[in-house]
Design a protein around this nucleic acid. Structure first.
Ligand SMILES: [Zn+2]
Ligand SMILES: [Zn+2]
Ligand SMILES: [Zn+2]
Ligand SMILES: [Zn+2]
Lengths: 162, 162
DNA sequence: AGATAGGATGTTATACTATAACATGTCGAC
DNA sequence: GTCGACATGTTATAGTATAACATCCTATCT
């Protein structure tokens, strides 16, 4: 249950795993991973960074495939509803899910220096559940977003002399 | 550390405590709780509900004190920077802090039926800190927002027959 | 009191984020 | 081939937030 997104990892495996998982889950459930939805997912997967809807529109435009906002927002709605992507509320933007396939309540670690977003998951019996139970609150969904500095950016700050 | 916001409590004490605390802390720190800032804080305190900037503008207008968006956004910036209010990212709106005066990392419980927002705080040594430490991430701020149904709305649902 | 400087507010315009509403296209079931 | 369901295309607009500059207020120094 390590955080995926910051340190060296096989990112091409990230991408191919996520795409394969999305295809499999869509096939199993009768959802349609159309070219538009798949393209948006690929763009989100390209880096562990959150992209806004208008960033995606710009990228599509640069590929010679200009689209209007509702097109991208609908693709994002599909991806987030089915757990292939998450919205980062703090940034009004979207990241591909780093733990595809499993139901999970994600925790995001957002680096304010390099904008990378790592995703990890809550251990069970977490204090949010405890707080909710204590308050008699029936929790349905939770968003946990932390801002700070990632290991690489921290290392860079500690050796500023070139 | 109980959640403040849902169940019966002395809400007028909420309001007067928060205002007194804000005045005291501003006096101590040389911050200026101007009439505009104080009025916005009072509006946020009137209920345990998140208000958007444009809701506040509408309320001010209805009081015969119309203002432009930057005025309210600046008051909100002052209040959030100094811990008198918090932004609820999920709702693009703002609540008065229910634990004024103490440094804390709040947890919000947002009722999707009645829109009330309760604020509680993380116990120390919480797993978010643990996850951040494990990832080598230097956490600066965290936003924890849970959606669900509050005790009162849950009770109401369970006895729907009038 | 008058000059000055910092910060708070007033005002205009605009950027950024998201969705409503309706038209058109695609594809499989019948 | 037609029908229905769903996906996308298109236009317009709603909702959230800030840049930039003008003005005002207040505390301080002279
Ligand atoms: Zn990766
Ligand atoms: Zn970083
Ligand atoms: Zn109260
Ligand atoms: Zn409720």
């Amino acid at each position: 249950m390590t955080a995926i997104g910051f340190s060296g990892h096989d990112h091409s495996a990230c991408i191919s795993d996520a795409l394969a998982s999305a295809e499999a889950r869509c096939r199993e459930n009768g959802w349609r991973l159309t070219p538009m939805r798949r393209r948006v997912l690929e763009l989100l997967l390209s880096e562990h960074r959150a992209l806004g809807a208008y960033d995606l529109l710009k990228l599509l435009s640069e590929e010679g495939q200009p689209r209007q906002p509702p097109v991208v927002y609908r693709a994002l709605a599909f991806l987030t509803e089915h757990g292939f992507a998450h919205k980062i509320e703090r940034l009004n933007s979207y990241v591909a899910c780093a733990h595809p396939g499993s139901a999970h309540s994600p925790i995001f670690l957002i680096c304010s220096a390099c904008d990378k977003v790592a995703e990890t998951t809550s251990p069970s019996g977490n204090p949010l559940e405890a707080a909710a139970r204590e308050a008699g609150f029936a929790m349905e969904a939770a968003a946990i977003e932390a801002s700070g500095t990632c290991p690489e950016c921290r290392a860079r700050q500690n050796e500023p002399a070139e």
